[in-house]
Design a protein around this nucleic acid. Structure first.
Lengths: 220, 220
DNA sequence: AAAAATTTTTAGATTTACCTAAAAATAAAA
DNA sequence: TTTTATTTTTAGGTAAATCTAAAAATTTTT
């Protein structure tokens, strides 16, 4: 049984490990809004519990148990997000903080029934995949919008940034999940991208394009 | 802003205050499965925060702020219980522990939307009234089944004991909310009560009869 | 009203998750 | 390969919520 705080550490390590193999103390500290010294303390504790492998000065990796625990928290987080959007009519930019709390409710029964109630969704409101109760989920094949060439088209299926500001911005532009887009031009000057969205031409900054994930349906 | 623990103290004091005016340290300790010394510490803290009135050795009472906070937690607890039973098909004896956790999720928006989603229910699965968002709720007029005289009849509208064992027992006997009953006899020997439930004669112990709440529809 | 029993509080410790400041290890630059 | 910079850890301390054991206040009984 893990504490609220331990669960948050595991989740953070899990997410950081999606980008780098060995997760660094400082990276965890920054993500968790705490100090490196505190992270070292907690890492030792998690190592004692067999949830992470830890060699001094070398960063951490999750053990299998640690990873499973983290995936379970991610599953809960994403299911609650679906609940909030689908059933309680929250917007996709409003759900993160509440889900941060709900993900720590400990009841296997609750989550299984919630999953069923929601119709076993495969993705959360931001397009992130929801692990099934065995922790399995499809490794989704995304391409960042910024990587598309002029003429490429595809469907918006996710975002790699969950800040409210970013999501609200996308909403305003009409760039929501499921929308079809085609890249019509890339500006040399600032790298901004011109796209075609339901016959309208819109321009998005390089920064925005970096965080929109596309499931490509081929060139041209 | 209260901590998880502070909220639980306030809620416990609130419930104890429904029976006695001045809530005693020992009573709180027993209810919260902790030691009197710990209770004294916490009471001081709550008094400093203006949530309870406290005179040494004289027990505590909630201030208006304290009471409102407690009522808000009770509201959340009961709404979540309705959610669990109505939407996720939990049984009435399975919801208490999960609701104990869910009641601490801090989001006004969440609770208001949940309330709406559930259709603004007036009572939880055990018949306990749900305060509205302003903390108001009808003081329900209950009579304990044990207090009924032979010939009296009424509708089961609540229970004053929420243990899983008790609720399961009632379920098995068919004594669920909304059922009509009539007292047909009271045994001298052990005080057990014979009741008529949809034309069937059933016998319940004095102990059980004490915890069934009836909204009486008059004598005979 | 004194003695006994009960209830409540104080005093001093413990655990968890933090912190700051300084030391140690590692990585990068000159 | 030293020097410098960065990262990480250790050491020692704090605040929240708990504990045990002992002292103090209150209540009950004789």
């Amino acid at each position: 049984m893990q504490s609220y705080t331990e669960e948050n550490y595991l989740k953070t390590i899990y997410h950081l490990a999606e980008q780098t193999t060995n997760v660094q103390t400082n990276a965890i500290a920054e993500q968790m809004q705490t100090k490196p010294a505190s992270v070292t303390d907690m890492i030792k504790k998690l190592a004692d519990k067999g949830l992470v492998d830890y060699i001094k000065y070398q960063g951490v990796t999750l053990t299998e148990i640690g990873r499973n625990t983290a995936i379970d928290i991610v599953r809960k987080h994403r299911l609650w997000e679906v609940f909030l959007v689908d059933k309680l009519n929250f917007k996709w930019d409003e759900v993160h903080d509440v889900a941060e709390e709900l993900e720590h409710i400990k009841s296997v029964e609750l989550i299984e029934r919630l999953d069923e109630f929601l119709g076993f969704p495969k993705a959360d409101p931001h397009g992130d995949p929801i692990p099934d109760k065995n922790g399995r989920f499809a490794k989704t094949q995304f391409i960042k919008l910024i990587e598309l060439k002029v003429g490429d088209s595809g469907t918006i299926t996710g975002v790699s940034q969950h800040s409210s500001a970013f999501l609200k911005h996308l909403e305003k532009l009409g760039l929501t999940l499921g929308k079809q887009i085609q890249v019509s031009d890339v500006t040399d000057f600032d790298g901004s991208v011109e796209i075609l969205l339901s016959n309208k031409q819109i321009n998005i900054s390089r920064e925005v394009a970096k965080h929109i994930l596309i499931s490509s349906n081929g060139k041209n």
